Computed example of a mutant assay.
Amino acid sequence: MRSLPRLPGASSLLAVVATAASLFSAGAQQPAASNLVHTKMPTGFGMMQPLWDGKAPGAVGAEDDDQPKLFCYPATGPGPHTAVVVLPGGGYNHLVMEQEGAHEARWLQTHNISACVLQYRLSPRYLYPWAMVDGQRAMRLMRFHAKDWGFRPDAIGVWGFSAGGHLAAWLATADPHGDARFRADGTYGEAVQSDAIDKVSARPDFAILNYARTDLDPSIPGTNGMEALTGKNAPQVLVDALNPVLHVTKETSPSLIYATERDEKVNSLNATSFFNALQKAGVDAEVHVFQQGPHGTHMGDDQPRYPELAVYPLIVEHWLQLHGWLTAPTAEK
């Protein structure tokens, strides 16, 4: 395992990301507005909440996929509730809304935790920074409306899968009061805030990471940057800015990390590398690397070929209990 570079301070991290964004915006081409993905809605949600009233910033059209939104599954027991933003995977070019979204949201709901599945913007219609913008806005929207929506403002987490796990880890390590959007001159934060919601912290209070891309080091087998997010030939400074393991600090969100050794798409070294960085920074973390299971095993409870994984929901439940985010365990319905 390579040694990590010296962790940047907040000001140096902003400079790195701003430089990256400036370089990227100077050389990238926005995909044609006709490149639609047509994301399917998850099933069983109780409420749909757009992230912005009216047109989303950076939107290139007026189709459904141009309007990022939350599909919410509110808890019904006594509150206020812990809340979780679920980030489906799909390689930043589609979203696995049912098995990596609705399924987990319903599981959380039965455990008296409110959940919202995020439909974030996708390649090729949208490249960096728009998925990150949507992730930050989702966290801020949940926290801004915590009292109105019955959430604990200090218990709003993320649960991400694969590319959604990368987004979750990015949120866990990014500047909570920064902004993923930048202008060509490198200005940051206040210049692009659109309303009071943008002033709220975007850092999750905890992160659950399932087979997540958390380390973009090319020495890890199968790791070759994030082309679907950044476009081709992204400058290394941008790749580094989007590499969560390089930006872990003592302020990073406590994390539960799940992976399988036989994952053919996201090597389990991503999990152990991020865990090691969290340990070095003194952040509470727990990692489980199971021997069996390919990429995309969801919660592990729908994998009859890999019965070992069936214990994972119980691991999540106990980890949430350990930290006080699940205060009244209930039997699954």
Rank of each mutant, 00 (worst) to 15 (best):
G91L: 12
P74M: 14
H318M: 10
A174T: 08
D134S: 04
F206M: 00
N210P: 03
L4R: 05
R181S: 13
M139Y: 03
A56P: 04
L13W: 12
R125W: 07
A180R: 11
S123N: 08
T76P: 02
V86Y: 09
I257M: 03
G160A: 01
P204H: 08
M1K: 10
F71G: 08
V86G: 09
A168F: 10
D217F: 06
H145Y: 02
F144I: 11
Y211H: 01
Q291P: 01
G9N: 15
V200D: 02
A241V: 03
L238N: 09
H288A: 09
G44Y: 06
P74S: 13
E98C: 12
T249K: 03
I197C: 00
D175S: 04
G189T: 10
E104N: 07
A259D: 04
L95D: 07
Y188A: 10
Q321G: 05
L95Y: 09
G44R: 09
H318I: 06
V192A: 03
N112W: 00
P176T: 06
R262P: 01
A169R: 01
L229F: 05
L326R: 05
K232A: 14
A28Q: 10
F144M: 14
S12K: 01
P74V: 12
T230S: 15
T223W: 02
I197K: 08
A207I: 05
R152M: 09
M47F: 03
S273Q: 05
W107E: 06
P124K: 14
E104W: 02
S268M: 09
I208P: 00
K199Q: 09
D284W: 09
D179T: 00
V248Q: 11
E286W: 10
T330N: 10
Q291D: 11
F182V: 07
R143T: 07
M97L: 05
F161K: 02
Q49P: 04
V287N: 04
R121Q: 08
T330H: 14
P42N: 02
L269I: 04
G296H: 15
G101E: 00
T110R: 05
L309W: 10
E63Q: 07
I257G: 00
T19D: 13
G135Q: 01
R203F: 04
M142F: 13
L141K: 09
Y211R: 02
R6F: 07
D198N: 03
G231W: 04
V289A: 01
G101Q: 02
H38P: 00
D284T: 14
F151V: 06
A228M: 15
A328D: 08
A196R: 12
W52N: 05
C116W: 02
L256K: 04
G46T: 01
Q99P: 15
Q119I: 00
S123F: 01
P129C: 13
G165C: 07
L127T: 10
T187F: 04
N276A: 15
G189F: 10
S22V: 11
D65K: 07
T330R: 15
L87M: 04
A32S: 06
D263F: 13
A32Q: 05
Q29D: 10
P244F: 06
G165Y: 01
C72K: 03
Q321A: 07
G150M: 00
T19I: 06
Y120W: 03
L13F: 13
K40S: 14
Q119F: 00
R213W: 14
S219W: 00
W52C: 07
A146E: 06
G178N: 03
L216Q: 14
